[in-house]
Amino acid sequence: MTRTTVIIGGGVAGMTAASRLADLGEQVILLEREEQVGGHLRNWDRLFPNRRPGYEVLNYLTEELGSKVDIRCLQTVTTIFSGERDFQLQLASGKSLRCDALLLATGFDLFDARRKEEYGYAIYDNVITSAELEELFRSGAPITTRQGKVPKRVGFVHCVGSRDEKAGNLYCSKVCCVTGVKQAIEIKELFPEAEVFGFYMDLRMFDRHFEEMYYEAQQKWDINFLRGRVSECAENQDQSIVLKIEDTLTSRPLKMTVDLLVLLVGFVPSPETLRLAAMLDLPVGEDRFLEPADEHTKSTLTVKPGVFLAGAVKGPFSISNAIADAGTAALQIHAYLKTL
């Protein structure tokens, strides 16, 4: 009998795992909720740390998938029945699927910035999210304030919805720091005359080339990093944004006007992930991300035989880390299938 693996979620992790499993000779069905695979990567213009175009990675992953994987888009799983050694999936389309192994790669959602009421996102004209800025970069449309002005001063607010117990998210979203530095540089590339500020609590440049990028942001691009968490924003009469922050390095409150304020929104677990996890009785951490069987040694396995995890279902991930993780998951699934 042919062994089948169903991967739920066709983002970076799902695509990578699907290719690796197919390379290993496994039969794979990749289910994607949207019209196309690619996940959040489809919305991202350029990637840190080298600012290469996101589509390069997306194209690579897509080409790799080729025709060796059965990709089914616009599919939502309604129910999962766990059998003795296999799984029955009921799809919203009415179809059902049987599989021997199941990989959850349903990824993450971006934090809903409206929940930080004090920043006035979706209330003040010139407060946008990092995802919206990326979308602007990608569209190639001129970047202006909502009033059509070229921005003279741009601020980036770090940790929006992350490291924030009151928002329910105590964890660090890991990639916003470097995204903020990347986007700040990109704003300077477009507007060399603009003053660009990053408002941060710590700059967590955790991976290779990140710290160098931060250095470049300071040294080459004159980007100003001001340590403190923005406490509130308000709109001026000309729709510019006035923000209040403690300049923790002088221990004094600071007030500043910016033409455009970018909120670096963090990761939150997607409701879809949690819904599937509940159906499979998978343990969920206090941060509401899914728990693998062992954090260090079995990071793509779950406590439930035949169910595997890859990428941002387990917390904030960079693209490189998601790709590496998905490769590991594929090997673990392959090893598991051989035992059946």
Partner: peptide, 10 residues
């Protein structure tokens, strides 16, 4: 000012 945003919060 986006009044719909305030209305949603209200």
């Amino acid at each position: 000012m986006i009044i719909e945003g305030k209305k949603r919060l209200w």
